[in-house]
Design a binder for these strands. Structure first.
Lengths: 215, 215, 215, 215
DNA sequence: CATGAATGAGCCTTCATTCAT
DNA sequence: TATGAATGAAGGCTCATTCAT
């Protein structure tokens, strides 16, 4: 009898934590981390401030958990999306499609405010970078793979190694994301990214070069 | 006699303001805007809080002034450098040289920590965006001008307008700068920028394309 | 068991609020609203400033509650006294008796200093007028009712409507109260009020007029 | 030569003081004393804060001067107006006309905010009452005189002495003024005062009583 | 007489966090 | 697990007043 109670209590506890978690996410998406108070979160979650501290060590700890989850989730999603693409697809299209997906995920799942928080954290020397540092690692690997294949298939031509190129693509994505963060909502993330990555690709795409010369 | 007195008090006032200004800059460089209190600034400047409000309408107003000064200073320097370049220089080289100069200015005059502060500020929702939006305007104009000329001289070929292209070059610079800020000191800003901008140029440089095809 | 605990904490909270409330009242009685700081209140109440804001949204909100309580208490007491009066009593006497009672309540239950505080508050532009405006509403209704009945019973004769007349009686009471507040203790509130209201009644009392004419 | 200079300086000084004075008056009329800052006054007067303290010991001192001047001016104006009325005018009309004039003076020359300040001061035990206390003295004398004459001419009939009656009329005026202060701008001071004083007069006017009985 | 920079005490309010229950 | 009262440090800002010039 006691056990059952314990289980139920635990379940309820987990439920409550999830609730808080979800509300925090919603609020962080709408406003800056610093402007979202614990009270606002607990009010939305329908619990008291005390409860918050039962489940989270601090506001910072919550943010950390949140971001770790994001990074993990994003990375997994990039990857599974990438792996789902048909092998015969043109490498340039693969890159453009993946980029599109990445932006879609950021826009829909993270939201601008959250991304902003991540970027701000990276610029704050104080904050534990470890968590956030992992961010982009998967993206880098994917780009590298695609580029490598593209070169092998002679779709791409370049003097740079796939590793170096991949780094620059990731940098471009990061730069665009930064732009999105500071220009939101007056920035069409998807379109600008397509164009920008398109530009980078133009320099290495065999087909484009061929086309230009024919003309 | 009266004038001199007046001048002297005025001078002192300006001095104090500068002092506050300088301390604020130092502190904002080290920490986030929101975490720097007016009191911290005035303590460092050796004045009272009241004095702060003699010279600045609010904490926000100070930040605004600070950022405007940054933007203005940088913009002026880009420009005077650009105007000093010989007209007959190849457009691609002009771009690469200007980019080099921009990086040099940032590295030598502002420093990474300072730039970091600017970027952090831009990510703080507190700051009125209007001012920040002006940032890079000069850079943008310069790129636009070079690209336009390059197209006219048939050094560049592209389906995009010079305006759009310029925007993307500026974005690239910004992205690289962000990268520099978060990777410092493990990031060779100059080299990475040259390579990155080089990649972007590759897609529009007539000479490169020609070379590739010949081979 | 859980409930009792909850109740106890709640009780303590209510207790604290009351304590703050009482101290605020005391201080507002002694000095102007603007000159009483939240800190002064909390110091007196033996709590911290933070606690204040647990129980009251703002200093203004506290004042509002305070005033509403005053108004409500007084109004209830007027009313129950009035309703206890015999129906057959002469209307002029009813008015004079009610006025007597009103003065008695003010004198004995509120006290001059308190009334002073209320009047000072009403003169402070800070306070939201809506609440204050309600003040005297009950008194007004009572006067109106008596006057109406008096006219119907032909004890009173006047060209003015009971509503208008009632308003003027209320104003007279308020004026007298103000006088009491600033002249205390050199002002025989009860006597002066009787005389003053008597004068106002003289103009509408049929019996008085009749008497005068006979003579 | 020195003297002339001194004179000129003095003149200018007086001018400046007047200027500050006038601006303070304007601002106090528009807003509460506590909400009008020294800076606001000096800004409007086009002088610096330092100058303010050359001419006035403190903000309070300025208010005091202002009020003393008001009281004096008002009293003088009541009086000269009253003395200008034709001797043969009916006493009731004299009272009504004088009351009208009093209200006019308050409305046009003092303004509601100023009056409010006076009334608040009277309710503040701390403030030096001496100055404000004189307020109304002249008014009382005028009423007394009119009432006395009215009784002598058998226009008024009452069991009360002119002194006592006069006191009640003054109280009524004060009450109405208080009402004006707290109800402004939703209070038609002139009309309400006419009506109210009319009511008081009704009880002592021989003509009115006569009229009623005839009907 | 006039300036205006500087003061410093004070104000209201916020908020992450603790803790007894 | 959940509550909610209490904390206390901090924060941005105001303003009457002083004083050297």
């Amino acid at each position: 009898m006691e056990k059952r109670k314990n289980n139920r209590t635990k379940e309820q506890g987990a439920e409550t934590k999830k609730q808080i978690y979800a509300c925090a996410e919603k609020l962080f998406r709408a406003d800056d981390y610093q402007n979202v108070s614990v009270e606002a979160i607990t009010n939305m979650a329908g619990v008291t401030k005390g409860t918050f501290y039962v489940h989270f060590e601090s506001k910072d700890a919550l943010l950390l958990e949140l971001m770790m989850a994001y990074v993990k989730r994003m990375d997994m999603q990039y990857n599974s999306f990438f792996e789902g693409l048909p092998d015969e697809m043109a490498s340039a299209d693969v890159i453009l499609t993946v980029v599109d997906k990445i932006i879609e995920l950021m826009t829909d799942q993270l939201g601008c405010q959250n991304m902003r928080a991540v970027y701000r954290m990276q610029l704050s020397s104080t904050v534990k970078m470890e968590v956030v540092k992992g961010y982009g690692r998967k993206m880098y690997k994917i780009f590298q793979e695609i580029l490598e294949r593209g070169v092998q298939r002679q779709e791409f031509i370049t003097k740079l190694s796939p590793e170096v190129l991949a780094r620059h693509f990731v940098m471009a994505i990061r730069g665009l994301t930064y732009e999105w963060c500071i220009r939101y909502p007056d920035f069409d993330f998807k379109q600008e990214a397509s164009m920008h990555i398109g530009l980078l690709l133009d320099g290495i795409r065999v087909d484009k070069i061929y086309n230009l010369v024919i003309k």
